[in-house]
């Protein structure tokens, strides 16, 4: 293997993602090649610096804030969606009031829609939005590898 091919596996080596055989080949090359050895040290340093950043803990009241949103049925901060949610709530209120009036007039009230169920329906396509990365990257893996290897 030449240096270019080793460079591509620097990271896999750092991340312990190489097969035993490749790992040995890599180590053998490092011990023999000052250039790769120096460059590898640079990558290893970066990995250490980044993973050395200590963890940031979530605020203690995070659960409470989320539970509040869940109980209020708030699931979005998009103004348009909030407006639609508010409109739905108003509609439900209207239906409800109509129901009471109807009941008072000795009519059987119609079923009141469940706002929570509606929210889940509205959100069901959230996860299915698809791959943001695939959309912004029309380039195939093979081409990237090719570009990277020169």
């Amino acid at each position: 293997m030449n240096c270019k091919k080793f460079k591509i596996i620097f990271n896999a080596y750092i991340d312990n993602a190489l097969t035993e055989q490749d790992r040995k080949l890599f180590e053998l090359h490092l011990s023999d090649c000052a250039g790769c050895s120096k460059e590898y040290a640079g990558f290893q340093n970066i990995k250490q610096l980044v993973s050395g950043l200590s963890r940031q803990n979530a605020p203690a009241n995070l659960e409470n804030k989320v539970m509040e949103k869940i109980q209020n049925g708030v699931f979005t901060s998009n103004p348009l969606e909030l407006f639609i949610a508010a409109a739905k709530t108003s509609l439900i209120a209207a239906v409800f009031i109509f129901g009471i009036i109807a009941a008072l007039s000795f009519f059987t009230p119609s079923a009141v829609p469940n706002s929570k169920t509606d929210n889940v329906d509205a959100m069901s396509n959230y996860i299915l939005k698809g791959n943001i990365f695939a959309k912004q990257n029309g380039i195939s893996d093979a081409k990237i590898m090719q570009a990277l290897l020169g």
């Binding site: 940031q56 979530a58 605020p59 995070l62 804030k65 989320v66 949103k69 869940i70 708030v74 699931f75 901060s77 929210n119 889940v120 959100m123 069901s124 959230y126 996860i127 299915l128």
Partner: peptide
């Protein structure tokens, strides 16, 4: 950024809850 992270984390869990069925 802490305040951004707080907002984002709240959104993540709220959306997770309302999408749990999926």
């Amino acid at each position: 950024n802490h305040s951004e992270s707080d907002d984002i984390s709240q959104n993540i869990f709220t959306k997770a809850y309302f999408n749990l069925k999926s």
